[in-house]
Design a protein around this nucleic acid. Sequence first.
DNA 1: TCGTGTGAAGACGTTCACAGCT
DNA 2: AGCTGTGAACGTCTTCACACGA
Lengths: 215, 215
Amino acid sequence: MIPGKTIYRLSIYNRCLRRVEENQLTTISSSALAKAAGVNPSQLRRDFTYLGQFGTRGLGYPVQELMDAIRDVLGRENLQPVILVGAGNLGSALLRYQGFQKEGFEVVAAFDAVPDAVMQREISVPVYDVDTMPKFIAENDVKLAILSVPVEHAQEVANELVDAGVQGILSFSPTVLQVPETVTVNSVDLALELEQVSFFVKNEKISEVEIEPTS
Amino acid sequence: MIPGKTIYRLSIYNRCLRRVEENQLTTISSSALAKAAGVNPSQLRRDFTYLGQFGTRGLGYPVQELMDAIRDVLGRENLQPVILVGAGNLGSALLRYQGFQKEGFEVVAAFDAVPDAVMQREISVPVYDVDTMPKFIAENDVKLAILSVPVEHAQEVANELVDAGVQGILSFSPTVLQVPETVTVNSVDLALELEQVSFFVKNEKISEVEIEPTS
DNA sequence: TCGTGTGAAGACGTTCACAGCT
DNA sequence: AGCTGTGAACGTCTTCACACGA
């Protein structure tokens, strides 16, 4: 079983490797890739042992094979359908965000309590009334949802998502969602992230804050 | 020295306590608060030992004193000025986001390469040309910045921020920023967070993914 | 010689279990 | 009885250091 933190870093390596690939390199050493990813070379090598072993001593890792191996673990051959709930302020920005597509996700539909108000904002994804959400989830076999509704409705909507069959939620609400343990929740709390930065700045430490997995 | 993970959780406890306070409770037990925060009671008590000790055995913690103690550690008596760079898609949504204010931050100005294009989007924060940024930072003694420029300009802008005197950056670019170790960087990578959820869903584990500090 | 793969050590974080206070 | 505070056990993650292959 691969640790969550390793999974997170594999995603980072994957990104870095794409840039390496663009530069026409066919192999890369652990130290070079580690530097690009902002981690320790030993850690990177340790992470790669979970992929089996195919680095060449004295040379490095074959870029293409490495990418294939990582993608294999992350299970990202085909596009993952995702829905978004709450197309307000943050939600509509996320709908326009291209980064999800780049990583192999497709936001197939959005839901909002007042879909009309959202329509005009140059969004290519269809926005439906939130009442139709459970039906859509069931019919399209959606497993992943992005939750960007106001905090006071977050738990309520999360319950609906879970009942409808969603198995993973990326939440942007500053609250702790209570869900069955069969459901995976990852919470991104923007204010908390800023608070973290603030703390370490105040305490003027030589404290490098890294991005971290949500194991 | 307080561990980064504890700091992160202190912020969560702080949020939960606000709700407890609204319910007119004057004391709360570790188990009740831990449940609300989604952590283990032992861990919560361990976290609180960093605040000194003022829980009452057999009773719990005094809500008000606890909040004061946490706020004292987080150093959040007064409003922290923050600037935002890159008022595009995501950036302008962040400008309209109220969550930062609620946690005691004030976004005092935004900067963009094309400020005119941003002006009309019902934003209350002034948007300036990015060229004026270093001057603004120096004059207003800004220590924190939110970075939401396109990935290809992220490093470049980060360098400018650091040169101008910024000490903490909350970045939304899917890249690893290289900064001096005196500067704190916290990176929120939206696609990676979604990828995390996706992985644990695919592997149908009983794997509760929690929000985590960026230590 | 260069760089991987890995045992072993170390650092860190979490949880248990219970003594002791109210 | 109820709940905190904490030593000690445990588990996880990171880093070192070096054997070994190319």
